[in-house]
């Protein structure tokens, strides 16, 4: 019972922080839109071309704009020591990372869902592709949150080379991109591919808490 209260309190704090920092989220979304515009400026307005490469562009830019929000994942909580306080209240670092991933998924990634239908209008995507995009993003953003947790916790240790965290996210998101974009081109059943994506998400949900917690413990003991 008390444990559930603790988790509830944690999420209440995260949601309050989210609403105080809501401009950050909007600036990420604006970054996403602007980069799409820039892509279209670079490629020209050939409708057929935009239709064929639309989903790929949207996914790559989603990935890049999600890297922007990574620095805030743990840094503030780590610097002011609240991670230790939360840990001392009886939550292991692994569970803490898991909760953080869920809150990042809810408060940072999911709001991007609103922007997806609007962006698909720009590319004249057919309706079924928009549905696929939304479904894959729903699962894929969970994977992105896990990767973000790994790279952000790695960056806690590293005060000079910030691009390293971004590299890690990009590297491990290769399967995600392949399956998410590939769903539209595949002849096979959609449901199998979605199951595959869910499987990858579960694998990352297994790896991320363990490795992030290890990085956080290292960072705390070497502060």
């Amino acid at each position: 019972m008390f444990f559930i209260i603790k988790i509830f309190v944690f999420f209440r704090r995260e949601s309050k922080l989210f609403f105080t920092n809501i401009t950050d989220l909007f600036s990420n979304i604006v970054f996403f839109f602007l980069s799409i515009f820039i892509f279209v400026f670079a490629l020209g307005t050939d409708e057929q071309l935009l239709k064929t490469i639309g989903v790929g562009i949207i996914w790559s830019l989603l990935l890049l704009s999600s890297i922007l929000s990574l620095r805030k994942f743990y840094e503030e909580d780590f610097n002011n020591g609240i991670l230790v306080i939360i840990h001392m209240s009886g939550i292991s670092y692994e569970l803490l990372v898991f909760l953080k991933i869920i809150s990042h998924f809810l408060f940072v990634q999911l709001p991007f869902l609103i922007s997806l239908p609007i962006v698909s209008i720009f590319f004249n995507l057919p309706t079924n592709e928009v549905y696929n995009l939304i479904i894959t993003f729903f699962i894929g953003s969970l994977i992105l949150s896990c990767l973000g947790s790994i790279s952000a916790s790695m960056n806690l240790l590293n005060k000079t080379n910030f691009s390293l965290g971004g590299i890690v996210v990009l590297l491990f998101s290769i399967p995600l991109i392949i399956f998410s974009v590939g769903i539209n081109n595949a002849e096979s059943e959609l449901i199998y591919l979605i199951n595959l994506l869910i499987g990858i998400a579960l694998i990352f949900l297994g790896i991320a808490p363990w490795s992030s917690a290890a990085f956080i413990k290292l960072a705390i003991s070497n502060k």
Partner: peptide
């Protein structure tokens, strides 16, 4: 940990939350 309070020399309160919210968070924990 259940019987320990640790107050570090850093400011563990979140800068963007109100005093009341911070206290409520610690209370819940």
């Amino acid at each position: 940990y259940n019987q320990t309070t640790f107050i570090s020399d850093q400011y563990t309160s979140s800068r963007k939350l109100t005093v009341y919210d911070n206290i409520n968070f610690w209370k819940g924990l």
